[in-house]
Design a protein around this nucleic acid. Sequence first.
DNA 1: TGCTGGTATTTGGTATGCCAAATTTCGACG
DNA 2: CGTCGAAATTTGGCATACCAAATACCAGCA
Lengths: 241, 241
Amino acid sequence: MNTKAALNKRWQSGDNGLAIERLPAKESFKSRAYAALKEAITNMNIYGSDEPLLLDERDISERLGASRTPIREAVAMLEQEGLLRAVPRRGILVVRRTKAEVIEMIEAWAALESMAARLATARASDEAIAELRAFFKEFDLNRIERERCDEYSTANIAFHQALIRLSGSSLLAAMTDNLFFHVRAIRHRTIFEMDRAQRSASDHLEIIQAIEARDADRAERLVRDHTLRLARHVESHVNLD
Amino acid sequence: MNTKAALNKRWQSGDNGLAIERLPAKESFKSRAYAALKEAITNMNIYGSDEPLLLDERDISERLGASRTPIREAVAMLEQEGLLRAVPRRGILVVRRTKAEVIEMIEAWAALESMAARLATARASDEAIAELRAFFKEFDLNRIERERCDEYSTANIAFHQALIRLSGSSLLAAMTDNLFFHVRAIRHRTIFEMDRAQRSASDHLEIIQAIEARDADRAERLVRDHTLRLARHVESHVNLD
DNA sequence: TGCTGGTATTTGGTATGCCAAATTTCGACG
DNA sequence: CGTCGAAATTTGGCATACCAAATACCAGCA
């Protein structure tokens, strides 16, 4: 009976000494379809036109060389994630966020990242914070050659992601990644980064200093205000609907 | 051509004056399976035993009177939501959160709700805030007869949900609903509400007062500290792993 | 009795086919 | 020429069947 129990438990988290994991375990078509679709949506200029962007199951299944079933499962997941919406008898369309929704996302982002700053101030090691500063320096130096706002936006988001990871909370990282995905999508449409570029640089520096000084309240407030400023900017200068 | 364009647009968000929506539109098996599974998981005592809780596709499809296909799509959605995890050749298991994960959730909750308090302070009408107070009073009065911690926890969460809705951000509401779902699941296991009950009552009152006074910083701080206190309590008094 | 090896069974992943609803097409009629 | 409507087509939802992998079972052997 001990043998049976051992066998039944073998598939669970392998606590046995042998350090070999379930090899390759070629990912399923579902997973691959999910990744492929998400990648495609990421590289899609969602707000480039006003036409409804719609996908076709059969078309996708042909291109990916799989049947409709795994594609439908992947679509169901992306639907749950808020990236797609399947309209019966119409097609699967890529959702466009309204301006109000984007603002809500940025506000949620502000909430999560300011909490991350607070947690990072309390928990992150000096070494980790130093890495953040190093990252920022590199970011700042490269900023000169990065004139195109797309690239600046990417670097900007990367900085914020690094900051969030300092908190040690993988949940905060996951939630903000999701928000970044949507916010990033409108960077093709707007150039709101340009007039924020200079200000962002000093903002980032202040944030790092606050964390280094282990001033949780200040770090939290700086991050929150920094991101809420973006929300207000979008509110007044961006037109999506 | 104008006719065609009009026809092509009819299915989109009905901006036409006619205020009738696609009637019943009997929800798909996928949706029903999703709802049924989520309901089942909600009413399940996830942390009651240490055995892995696993579901069987064929069993579920039989019970719901549908084929495996829509069930699989529903499972894929719940998997994306983090409630289930499909292990090949093993079954679909209900995920148990580790203590660290639950703490991260409460911290994220603190982040989102404190932001909601800030936004509510700036945006909510006096009438809406008054409703919050009324809700709190009813809540407080009923508290006496609600000795069982389960029910107190439910009422407690309802109060926080009402507060979040005051912010007017449906995104914050959606994100916290998701977190509440997981946190609520461990209420069967722990009685951490009992010793927090008294303190919560006064905390809630202070929060309402801060919002009424339109003191955004104070409201935000009170909400944050209130929820972070729960996180620390779980950290030191709850054992899940 | 306990272990080994091979077979039977279970189970998730995928392909395929059908169906009903909705759209589009296109011809008849005013 | 525009409109109406019926047939043809498209398309997503669902059911079913099959497969390969992994487990469970069991006979046989030490």
